[in-house]
């Protein structure tokens, strides 16, 4: 994990990710906030590549940038008269204060703990190992996750039906 390239990559990625996350918070336009969110997702995918988790990095880009960001954009589009100025609520200041305190606690704990780290890259981190693990040790959560996805799919379709479509399919 050493080398000039790795350090450069880490600092550049950290800068991009944190500045983009700050941009989500600060920008005055909801669409710009979504674009900064996409940049954050790509930055986190870069971190995954740096941590030898290449399958998860690609899955992150496919799922988050390819699907979830598009969903968010669609939701912004389908609510035309909602406020698009990315403004804050009345409880903004206590919320920010709370997260600052939480950040202080996290940073203290991170730097105070004596982590027992390993030296090299762990061995069994390839995509085939992930596939084996998902289908042997963790097969029950895998199946439950697929049921969950089906339920979410059906639920999302059902929630956004207009009353005419519901009347069409009602059991008369």
């Amino acid at each position: 994990m050493d080398g000039f390239g790795v350090s450069l990559a880490f600092w550049v990625l950290a800068a991009i990710t944190l500045v983009a996350a700050g941009g989500v918070m600060v920008s005055r336009n909801l669409l710009h906030a979504v674009l900064f969110l996409i940049l954050t997702f790509v930055g986190v995918a870069g971190f995954f590549v740096l941590l030898s988790a290449d399958f998860i990095a690609m899955a992150q880009v496919i799922i988050y940038v390819g699907a979830i960001a598009v969903l968010v954009l669609f939701a912004v589009l389908l609510t035309p008269r909602a406020s698009r100025d990315n403004g804050e609520t009345r409880w903004a200041l206590p919320g920010v204060l709370l997260s600052v305190c939480l950040a202080a606690i996290f940073l203290f704990v991170i730097h105070d703990t004596a982590w027992k780290t390993r030296d090299g890259v762990p061995q069994g981190l390839s995509a085939s190992d992930l596939g084996t693990a998902l289908l042997t040790t963790w097969v029950v959560p895998f199946e439950i996750a697929s049921v969950l996805l089906t339920a979410a799919l059906v639920g999302a379709i059902m929630l956004t039906r207009s009353p005419e479509e519901e009347a069409e399919d009602a059991l008369a």
């Binding site: 399958f55 880009v61 954009l73 995509a127």
Partner: peptide, 24 residues
């Protein structure tokens, strides 16, 4: 890279975002 096929799927998600940005 050992996951080239997923790389293709990942970069094919980008033109969708670009199209949306252009249209908006």
């Amino acid at each position: 890279i050992p996951v080239s096929l997923m790389y293709f799927l990942a970069v094919s998600a980008l033109p969708v975002i670009a199209t949306f940005m252009a249209g908006w």
